[in-house]
């Protein structure tokens, strides 16, 4: 699966499960299970059953109020015939395809910028993190105003350089780009994680590169990015999971419009579950999404052997 799975530490000999385990392997198994036991307990108590139940619901008609009725694969058949389902998948893919890579590039760039030794850095860092902490109820109105085609600041700036700005949130072709741009304002969270990751890069590496005559971009490409790759990997996976489940802004700011152009998967799922009382249908949607995310995650994990570099494994 991941690089770490393939690798077997020479000092720790894990035999195949059929053979007798070495003493050290037994101790490791016991310790490993002990350390993960809090999560195991939580999973068994609060996650496993809801998981299985939602899987069961996906094969039923279930309106939450009365008991579920088994209908086999009906929900899935109906889903594949539902144009809004396909629309919501397309919208979600579009969003993911742009927001995840952009988020990573901006996040890393910002973190590099904020890791410089410059006076007042604490203040700068706070400023860049601020958009992430402004409550959505407060910021949603601001977005509407910023993206306003007529009076909005963004189109005002575009107008100043002679470009006629698009309709953004009111134009079906531009509503998703608007949400993607909006998302970049919230890159502060990922930036924090990159910043924390940058602290782990040993100073000596830069020093020896300096002696070898490396210039700044070489240091970034050959030292910073590889050393940061475990954290980039983390943000990539979490970014994928997050954008496949993108919901809040679409719910509050555009509520799916215009012309269903921001009807994202989770929004349509939510409406089915809580507005139209199709919990079974929604569960089927959820499990399709689950499989989709799982497949993409596994692909990323597979690829990670080639580009994620764990200092702990050398």
């Amino acid at each position: 699966m991941s690089r770490s799975s393939a690798e077997v530490r020479p000092s720790v000999q894990v035999r195949s499960s059929r053979g007798p385990m070495s003493k050290i392997a037994k101790v490791n198994l016991r310790n490993g299970l002990l350390f993960v036991s809090p999560w195991l307990a939580g999973f068994a108590a609060f996650s496993l059953l809801p998981f299985l139940l939602s899987l069961y619901y996906s094969f039923t008609t279930y309106d939450v109020v009365s008991s579920p009725v088994w209908v086999g694969v009906d929900n899935f058949v109906q889903l594949f015939k539902d144009p809004l389902f396909w629309k919501s998948i397309t919208n979600t893919m579009y969003y993911t395809l742009f927001s995840v890579p952009l988020g990573i590039v901006f996040g890393v760039a910002l973190a590099l910028l904020l890791n410089m030794k410059v006076r007042g850095m604490a203040l700068y860092r706070t400023i860049f993190y601020l958009p992430s902490i402004v409550p959505v109820v407060a910021s949603s109105v601001l977005w509407l105003w910023l993206f306003d085609p007529q009076f909005g600041l963004i189109n005002g700036l575009l107008d100043a350089i002679g470009i006629e700005g698009p309709g953004w949130l009111v134009d079906p072709a531009w509503s998703k780009p608007a949400l993607i741009v909006m998302g970049l304002w919230g890159v502060g969270g990922a930036m924090i994680i990159y910043l924390a990751g940058l602290q782990d890069i040993p100073q000596e590496m830069y020093e020896s590169a300096q002696i070898d005559g490396a210039v700044w971009w070489q240091k970034i490409v050959y030292i910073t990015l590889p050393m940061l790759s475990p954290v980039i990997f983390f943000n990539l996976i979490m970014g994928l999971i997050g954008s496949f489940q993108y919901f809040t802004q679409a719910y509050i700011i555009t509520s799916g419009g215009p012309n269903d152009s921001t009807l994202f998967y989770s929004l349509y799922l939510y409406k089915n579950a809580f507005s139209y009382f199709h919990m079974g249908y929604a569960s089927a949607m959820a499990w399709i999404l689950f499989l989709l995310i799982m497949a993409v995650t596994l692909l990323v994990f597979k690829s990670s052997a080639r580009w994620v570099f764990y200092g702990g494994e050398r």
Partner: peptide, 17 residues
């Protein structure tokens, strides 16, 4: 239509501004 939609959005957003 887009100008009208733009105007409508500025004026009566669903956050009731």
């Amino acid at each position: 239509p887009t100008k009208v939609a733009a105007f409508n959005k500025s004026m009566s957003s669903n956050v009731n501004s």
